[in-house]
Design a protein around this nucleic acid. Structure first.
Length: 844
RNA sequence: GCGGGUGUGGUGGAAUUGGCAGACACGCUAGACUUAGGAUCUAGUGGGCAACCAUGCAGGUUCAAGUCCUGUCACCCGCACCA
């Protein structure tokens, strides 16, 4: 039948699918539904790289299989198109971001279509479309009306590169997650969202979800719930100093206190002249304020601080006076910004106490507090602790809670690491925040029937130097009337962060053209929640957490009928590339040249590390533009075809694991497809599996069916390769077999399978057929080959009828020549037969 | 430091409840067909001449361990002075 012309065949089917909307979800809400979702991309100017399709193809296979199994499948795609790179590109090239976005979207879309993904393109959404962001703004207004959006003057992370405020989640080691510029602190008035209000539910509700474990633990750690107590100390000046502690059992061992340098009491005491060493204290405060987050963590090992002279605290349980220090190891943003220090049983306090020569009292026996803090809560027994003596840590905590409450000194308290979400960005290319400020009425949302509040068309979207939004310069837009009193008011000029539009997009797919609501209640009830959501690990504490928060809020106000947006969450591993700077990846010629230059291979490698950093030691690294090791899917499709690309991405390895791209391995996938193509030459009639292949087919159906659902496409494909090998060995295949094979392959390689099915006239379009069924009873061959072990070592193999009883199997084993020779003259101690698996004879 | 994960041929990776380690593929070797081969096909391919030895390392349980238990090492990812 000649060579397979993948280019024209793939084009033919892709055009047909787009033209006929073959994969559009049906509006029939009585059918069983399945909602498969992949994270919609940010349409950057670079186009797709081979990492994108890994996620898309995996769920495409799931979606295609579910359709064949009779589900009404929603598998949508859209564009998360607001964001900085587009805006930066637009500024550099003096093109409006809207035009840049449009261009990028059309490139992405044609790339996705050239992969043959079965997206429902009738439901495409775009976060920058006013008919979409109308509802993003609407949700913000609801958040405001329910007290979950508030404006606050606060210390924020400010990226010196992007000139924009960042959320905590966007700061990595003190640097901007996106551009890598240092992040500094600034005080700015910001819109905040009270995600902390949902902290408990965001943790607790994880229990019922089918999320991969690392996503759950990462979210839990990020939210960082800890159970403890708030305890009130008093100062010698009569102030109440509240601390948070998880170890109230150690209160008798609190020998000093530490406040964060920013603590309000320190400011008050300085103002009142209570602190005698004010200069020293002020100097330390300034020093601490200057440090970036990065410096603060870098210097973490070495404790610094200043003792406040002229004021002390009283330990409420010992009634002893203890000194008060300020130190930047106490964070103003966690707990109460103040701690009771128990050097005997907290590592940080211990280090601090050693450095400042403070008393260390052992209150939990079991370690040696002179050498190190004893932090074991399991085995320790309370000592030197009055009424707690002799108790375990757990018991002592309970007793202390009771004592604190009885005496009005403290109470149980739960604290979180999670901070409220900084929601303002001083940028142009984002959703306008639909709020106005009036001197009389304060902040007011604009009337909901004025939504969407359109982003005004402006030309100068450079950010202001002082970190001011570009919109602020457009007074004709800024000046408006107060929706409350009708007086003069000003619009909010900050825009929403990139995460806004993606926090609810999966709901819009359910009913994307609705102009009365973000989606109809019927559509929301039918399609939700998302059955399977796949996306990157990097979004675990960003998009994934944010969207769970918004969803819970929408649930609370009755918009959505279920409290979690996603039933199941998985995460694909990255596709890695060759590191051209690693010695082992260089051509022989370049290696020789380097060896010649530096004298030896070792010296050459060392020189590379000096030149490029440690990275030069790793042969496999992330793909990046700077290394020029990015593989473009367009090239792969041109050289091998979309089906080969799809097959390879699924075959490359464990889906959850990172995998290096290999240009040679991909050939194996191409070869396999060519063999599938060639099978048509040996096609014979027949509408039943031939006996010699029947069991193999039933097993393959079973394996592929379950493997697609458990993200093991690699083994599903291996099974199909083995099946093809078996078929080829028989020298022929019949129509029934070929059709089943093409059906099983269809979710992975839809083009070639549809084409072969059509050429050979096997059935109507595969996309309209029913998924093959298997019969458990027929998965088993009539005879099995069983290994025979003597003392656990393989000695021979016997073939017996399947499900033979032990006596039959043993008789066959003993009849075997090699076995007989091996046990010659030995005593049989034990005979083990595992049905259909193996025989083991234990001899002496 | 805390949390999560991974260690299997030259490479990517397979191995239901413990039950033939290395499926499937890449690469490599030899051969065939070819003017040619970076195409295709056939055969071979963990190590060792063998007995045997092999799943990071050291023990243990078991008739039987990649899988279970104890200890240990290495690497990767996330968080990181969170009281």
């Amino acid at each position: 039948m000649g060579v397979y012309d993948y280019t024209s065949v793939e084009k033919k089917w892709q055009d047909k699918w787009v033209k006929e909307n073959t994969f559009a979800a049906k509006q029939d809400f009585t059918l069983p539904k399945y909602y498969a979702l992949v994270e919609f991309p940010y349409p950057s100017g670079d186009g797709l790289h081979v990492g994108h399709p890994r996620s898309y193809v995996a769920l495409d296979a799931v979606a295609r299989k579910k359709r064949l199994q009779g589900y009404n499948v929603l598998y949508p795609m859209g564009w998360d198109a607001f964001g900085l790179p587009t805006e930066n590109f637009a500024m550099q090239h003096h093109i409006h971001p809207e035009i840049v976005t449009e261009k990028n979207v059309s490139r992405f879309k044609s790339q996705l279509q050239s992969i043959g993904l079965s997206f429902d393109w009738t439901r495409e959404v775009n976060t920058t479309d006013p008919s979409y962001y109308k509802w993003t703004q609407w949700i913000f207004i609801q958040l405001f009306k329910h007290g979950l959006a508030y404006k606050k003057e606060m210390n924020v992370n400010y990226c010196t590169g992007c000139k924009v405020v960042l959320a905590n989640e966007e700061v990595v080691n003190g640097f901007c997650e996106r551009c890598g510029s240092p992040v500094v602190h600034k005080t700015k008035s910001q819109w905040m969202l009270k995600i902390t209000e949902y902290a408990n539910r965001l943790i607790d509700d994880l229990d019922d979800l089918d999320f991969i474990e690392r996503v759950k633990t990462q979210q839990k750690n990020w939210i960082g719930r800890s159970y403890g107590a708030e305890v009130n100390f008093t100062s010698t000046e009569g102030d109440k100093i509240t601390v948070f502690t998880t170890r109230c059992d150690t209160l008798f061992g609190a020998t000093y206190m530490v406040l964060s340098p920013e603590h309000a009491l320190v400011r008050a005491w300085l103002e009142n002249g209570i602190i005698k060493n004010a200069d020293e204290v002020k100097a330390y405060q300034e020093e601490a304020a200057k440090k970036s987050d990065f410096e603060r963590t870098e210097l973490a090992k070495d404790k610094t601080g200043v003792c406040l002279k002229g004021v002390a605290a009283v330990n409420p349980v010992t009634e002893q006076e203890i000194p008060i220090y300020i130190s930047d190891y106490v964070l103003s943003t966690y707990g109460t910004g103040a701690i009771m220090a128990v050097p005997g049983h907290d590592t940080r306090d211990w280090e601090f106490a050693k450095k400042f020569d403070l008393p260390i009292i052992e209150v939990v026996a079991g370690g040696n507090v002179d050498e190190a803090a004893f932090t074991d809560c399991e085995t320790g027994i309370l000592v030197n602790s009055g009424f707690l003596n002799g108790l375990s840590v757990e018991e002592a905590k309970k007793a202390m809670f009771a004592w604190l409450e009885e005496n009005g000194i403290g109470h149980r308290q739960v604290n979180f690491k999670l901070r409220d979400w900084v929601f303002s960005r001083q940028r142009y290319w984002g959703e306008p925040i639909p709020m106005t400020y009036c001197d009389k009425c304060g902040w007011q949302p604009i009337s909901e029937d004025e939504l969407p509040l359109l982003l005004p068309e402006i030309k100068d979207f450079e950010p202001g130097e002082g970190g001011e939004s570009p919109l602020a310069r457009h007074t004709e837009w800024v000046n408006t009337v107060c929706p409350c009193c009708g007086g003069p008011a000003k619009r909010e000029t900050d825009t929403m962060p990139q995460w806004a539009g993606s926090s609810w997009y999966f709901l819009r797919y359910m009913d994307p053209h609705n102009d009365q609501a973000l989606a109809s209640p019927e559509a929301l009830a039918y399609w939700g929640p998302v059955d399977w959501y796949n996306g990157g690990m990097e979004h675990t504490t960003l998009h994934l957490l944010y969207s769970r928060f918004w969803h819970k809020f929408l649930y609370d106000i009755g918009v959505v009928p279920y409290k979690e947006p996603y039933k199941k969450r998985t995460s694909h591993g990255m596709i890695l590339g060759m590191n051209p700077r690693a010695f082992v990846n260089m051509s022989k010629k370049d290696q020789d040249a380097l060896v010649a230059e530096y004298g030896s291979e070792e010296a050459a490698k060392k020189a590379l590390v000096e030149k490029y950093g440690e990275m030069a030691e790793h042969p496999i690294v992330k793909m990046s533009k700077s290394l020029k090791n990015v593989v473009n899917p367009d090239d792969i499709i041109r050289d091998y075809g979309a089906d080969t690309l799809r097959l390879y991405e699924m075959f490359i390895g464990d889906f959850e694991q990172a995998a290096p791209w290999s240009t040679s391995s991909i050939k194996g996938c191409k070869r396999f497809l060519d063999r599938i193509w060639q099978l048509q030459d040996i096609l014979i009639d027949g509408d039943e599996y031939r006996p010699e292949l029947e069991a193999a087919f039933h097993r393959a159906i079973k394996k592929v069916t379950s493997d697609i659902d458990s993200l093991k496409a690699n083994t599903a494909i291996a099974t199909l390769m083995a099946l093809v090998n078996d078929i080829v060995k028989t020298g022929a295949t019949n129509k029934k077999e070929y059709h089943t094979l093409l059906m099983l392959l269809n979710p992975f390689v839809p083009h070639i399978t549809e084409e072969l099915n059509q050429i050979c006239g096997l059935s109507g379009e595969l996309s309209q057929q029913a998924w093959p069924e298997y019969d458990e009873a027929k998965c088993i061959d009539s005879a099995v080959e069983m290994p025979v072990q003597i003392n656990g070592k393989l000695r021979s193999r016997i073939t017996v009828p399947t499900d033979s009883d032990n006596d039959t199997v043993l008789a066959a084993a003993h009849a075997d020549e090699k076995v007989a020779a091996a046990i010659e003259g030995k005593t049989i101690v034990k005979e083990i037969v595992v049905k259909n698996k193996l025989v083991n004879l234990v001899v002496k």
